[in-house]
Write a protein that binds this DNA or RNA. Sequence first.
DNA 1: AAAGTGCTCAACCGCGATAAG
DNA 2: GCTTATCGCGGTTGAGCACTT
Length: 381
Amino acid sequence: MGRPPCCDKSNVKRGLWTPEEDAKILAHVANHGIGNWTAVPKKAGLNRCGKSCRLRWTNYLRPDLKHDNFTPQEEGIIINLHKAIGSRWSLIAKRLPGRTDNDVKNYWNTKLKKKLSIMGIDPVTHKPISQLLSDYGNISGNISINTTNHFSNKNFKNTLFFEPETWSVQDHSSVTTCNAVCDFMPHFFSTEIASSCSSSSSSAQISPSSPFSWTEFLVSDPIFSVDLHQQIQPKLDVMLTPTNSNLTENKIPSCDFIGAHNSSSHNGNQVNADSPSASSFVDDILRRIWDDLHIIDQKTGNLHIIDQKTGMPVAAAEKQENKQPENVQANQEEEERKVGDSSPGASPPPSDRQNQVLPEKKGRGCGISTIFGRCMGTPAS
DNA sequence: AAAGTGCTCAACCGCGATAAG
DNA sequence: GCTTATCGCGGTTGAGCACTT
């Protein structure tokens, strides 16, 4: 049974939105709030499908949206969550305040997939392509794999997987900092969760018993310097070694994971993973990834991210970081200079459209601030 | 300078899930 | 329990722009 169309498609405007249309949506939302989108076009004086209005609001006009570039840390979160749960963009986006599922999806399709491929990592399985080829060779016969040129791209060292930058995320209650992607790698793949996964498209990507060794893979490449190898080895060890984390205790907070930023909903109560409150397998995976990176202050309920170098909450870790000898800092700065323009965290060239502020962005539409100012009399924050 | 090519991302499409009557 | 309406999601498209030849 097909569904009837939500509007008369032949009589509604399609395509890009004009600033005037945006202003009408914003004015309508300001006056009536969000809801009943099918009635919005009529009430707001728009010749648009209600669904289109909702999408415009959700993906572009919402005042809480961020319109700047993705940070390396956000990249790391996307990559790791994609590895864990696949293309569940809305779930991934909920971990990235100010980002929509459309943003995440587009960013993955246009940037991160390529970046992983350049690194020699299959963006579907998140395994090195050489390993996949090797596995294939083991199945289908003798295929000779040359592992020496995975990283012929000169930018390889700049890729986020091996650039343990520190970062900051501003959320509702606190500023949090932690190490980037290497530290994000959860241990949960070796836990009972991975082995107990039933069946889903994403579960196929989880390989708890994979014999793959990152170390061997990396060492096999001559471009991958000894120094860099030494730099990441501890992180690899952390990734590959079970810890005393929540995972091994089979405990998870009972909070709504989606609201983990909100300290009031993340109160540190713990329940068994088999509890009915664990709403889904995917949610459980997300909880465990998140929990492996954070602790909850039992007194304040605030969320802290643990610095895995020091094992301390980030605020304390930062103090130590600031105490490091000058020569260490100088080396890091030198390394950052080497990383140069192509680093994910580096400023894009002036011609990069992503570097443009919203009103000029691709010459489409009109800036949020402008529209808000026009509609509501106050500039957008 | 013009044409061709590639990239980005806003918008659309169709479907499943859920709510409402 | 059925039908209809609405919402939300993931996949896809194509306009507009930048870059290359």
